[in-house]
Write a protein that binds this DNA or RNA. Structure first.
Lengths: 215, 215
DNA sequence: TGGCTTACCAACCGATCGGTCAGTGAAGGG
DNA sequence: CCCTTCACTGACCGATCGGTTGGTAAGCCA
């Protein structure tokens, strides 16, 4: 009897199960948990409905497996974000753009996680905090803190706050570009790189006039 | 025969219909469209299921009515945001905090709109852009632009971008406070006013050291 | 060879879904 | 007075839901 992998992390190993997972990931992220039927998943995966329940005990188990896989995938490559050398502003800008690209390239996973957070509230928030964004966040905070150590940025600001703003602004682009795009002067929401550059510039320099010139 | 108000904006006028709308708004925003059954709505509203269909042609019609009502409610009071007088930084800070409070107070509506945007993608984005956030956005842009006119902020920044950042950072707080709260140094996500103050400070002054002191 | 496990499937189950229908009782107008 | 309108209901419909059951065919180890 299969479908007993409740706690384990063994990846499917079976080709059918992988196809089920892939189909489920796409459908769940696009339509949400309740809007997707096991029939639809089975059909898309090219297997029978009973086979879905052979590999996953319940629909919720399948969803959890999809979410776990998505989280794992999302954490790949984040070590490559940003350059390790160079002055702090460049390092921050590089991280911000890499992270935004990463989010946009994995839009399916991003939407899945976002939806899950929306539906499962605070309790899921803690889980996700630990296993998904944790690495991104820690790395970003480290970049900022190191810059602060070298007095390359203000001492009186909270590095965690800056990290929240960078990631938050990227998520904002991901989920609200379609809204803001339609406003007059909102055409920068069409170009991630331009958006990232503008946001980082403001983050670094603020919007108030300076003594010197701004660039 | 009722249930024929497909295009009209006449508010329910009937007490039963109002109770149905209220129940539906709460359930839809909490659990999402597909997870809420007409039975559940009817039960919560204290009417029969058939009566729901008497007032609203289909489940989707009811959902649309809820969304429309939510949008209308959300736009109330936004004219009171921010003070009209005083220096630009105070005006911006005041708007940002008022807007954040507004979002948090109407968390049900906010979540409903957010969910709808997530599920209905770009096509709904345009609608929402026009009818919900439009007024907020325009007002915020006006505040920023007026400050720019008086040379109270940099000339080379895009007012729309600043508006996106203010609103985006508020939405970030709303939806991700439960995630970021769990990180070391993320305790500022417990206090909206503190978060808003920190964000606006960075927005205004940037994170790079200045010639003078920062405050 | 025979027993055991595993991947898989068609058929089926009770429950619930969105939605319909025939009808009831009260209000209102002629 | 009847007649229409309207808010409202219980009983019902076909479809589909998540999940189960009994069974088949292939591989593996003895």
């Amino acid at each position: 009897m299969a479908a007993e992998e409740s706690g384990k992390d063994i990846q499917p190993s079976c080709e059918g199960a992988e196809r089920i997972l892939a189909a489920a990931e796409e459908l769940f992220s696009r339509d949400g948990f309740d809007a997707v039927s096991i029939n639809a998943i089975a059909e898309k995966a090219g297997v029978s409905k009973a086979n879905v329940f052979h590999h996953f005990k319940t629909k919720n188990d399948l969803y959890l497996a999809v979410l776990k896989g998505a989280c794992a995938h999302f954490c790949d490559y984040i070590d490559d974000f940003g350059s390790d050398r160079g002055p702090f502003p460049e390092r921050l800008g590089s991280f911000a753009l890499d992270h935004l690209k990463h989010v946009l390239e994995r839009s399916e996973i991003t939407r899945l996680i976002q939806r899950d957070l929306l539906e499962n509230g605070p309790r899921r928030g803690q889980e996700l905090a630990e296993r998904v964004f944790g690495q991104n966040f820690a790395r970003l905070v480290a970049i900022i803190r190191s810059g602060q150590g070298k007095a390359e940025l203000r001492q009186d600001i909270d590095p965690a706050m800056v990290a929240v703003m960078v990631i938050g602004l990227n998520i904002t682009f991901f989920q609200a570009a379609d809204v803001f795009r339609h406003y007059p002067g909102g055409d920068f929401m069409d170009d991630p790189a331009r958006y990232s550059k503008m946001a980082v510039d403001i983050l670094l320099n603020g919007i108030l006039p300076r003594g010197g010139e701004t660039k």
